[in-house]
């Protein structure tokens, strides 16, 4: 049986091949940590990651009345701004910011904090897998 991480890989690869606009591929450290995280979410019972669901989740307002975009903005290739402190937040897109998604610990730390700030709870493994799969394409 094919694991969903393999399925996702195939989907991503075929998207890249067939798409007219080819997204910048992840750097090796980014790819390594994304793979590791997706594997761990799968082990926690996540369903097959959906890039579309990830994109939608990013835009959805959580229980605290804000969405991820409140601080990260609409254009992930641009810097965002913390909604309260107004601190600049570097661009989230891994294609323009090589630091993004390259450190497993940081991804987990910010998922934990920010899900609680937006949703008032931790995100499920499926939600995190979806968002990560989508972010990886940005």
């Amino acid at each position: 049986m094919m694991t969903w991480s393999k399925k996702l890989f195939i989907t991503l690869t075929s998207t890249l091949v067939t798409s007219a606009v080819v997204a910048t591929p992840l750097t090796a450290p980014q790819q390594t940590s994304v793979d590791q995280l997706l594997k761990s979410y799968q082990a926690q019972g996540a369903s097959t990651p959906s890039i579309t669901a990830g994109a939608e989740f990013w835009q959805t307002k959580g229980d605290n009345g804000i969405a991820c975009t409140a601080c990260h903005g609409q254009d992930l290739t641009q810097a965002g701004k913390h909604i309260k402190t107004k601190r600049a937040i570097e661009a989230m897109a891994p294609s323009v910011n090589p630091e993004r998604l390259s450190d497993v610990g940081k991804v987990e730390k910010w998922f934990k904090r920010n899900c609680k700030s937006v949703w008032n709870r931790e995100c499920t493994a499926t939600e995190k897998a979806n968002v990560l799969a989508w972010l990886a394409t940005q």
Partner: peptide, 12 residues
Amino acid sequence: LDDHFGDNAELA
């Protein structure tokens, strides 16, 4: 830190 002036700022 779980309620850091309205934000979650939990650390390991």
